[in-house]
């Protein structure tokens, strides 16, 4: 994945937002997917805020379902708790369970995200999570 300056990129889609994400291992692809989504909804990269921690534990039927469930939780935290995801330490095991400590900041107002795009949901359409020669690759479509 060294050839990519960002660990994700936008792919063409006429109505929604489709991304391709790269990671050297599973944990990294989950982390990078969450960072990509946050970058889209906030229109920003990075922050200077004080970070707070939050625990998150999820179990799904498959790894593909797990990445959707993971992003769904982070989106819910953003929309309802105004928690902006910035980083995470996480572990994924062979039972498709994720144990994570999320780090992010709380924001009172969404006015600061003037370049952000509202994501309505994380879709299963064209969903891909696969092992590649040098790591993992994911493709995800967000309904916007």
């Amino acid at each position: 994945m060294n050839q990519h300056t960002l660990p994700w990129k936008l792919l063409e889609h006429p109505a929604d937002i489709r991304i391709e994400v790269y990671g050297t291992n599973l944990e990294q692809i989950f982390l990078n997917s969450a960072l990509a989504m946050t970058s889209i909804i906030t229109g920003t990269d990075g922050n200077t805020e004080e970070l707070f921690g939050k625990n998150l534990s999820l179990k799904s039927d498959s790894l593909e379902d797990l990445i959707v469930d993971w992003l769904r939780e982070i989106l819910f935290l953003f929309n309802v708790k105004r928690f902006v995801f910035c980083d995470a330490s996480l572990k994924i095991d062979e039972t498709n369970t994720i144990e994570a400590r999320l780090f992010g900041y709380f924001t009172e107002s969404s006015d600061r995200f003037l370049d952000g795009v509202e994501i309505k949901g994380i879709t299963y359409h064209g969903l891909l999570l696969e092992k590649t020669g040098d790591g993992f690759l994911a493709r995800i479509i967000f309904d916007v």
């Binding site: 006429p14 109505a15 879709t123 299963y124 359409h125």
Partner: peptide, 9 residues
């Protein structure tokens, strides 16, 4: 019609 997710829009 255009490309949606699942069902077309």
């Amino acid at each position: 019609i255009h490309w949606g997710y699942g069902f077309p829009i």
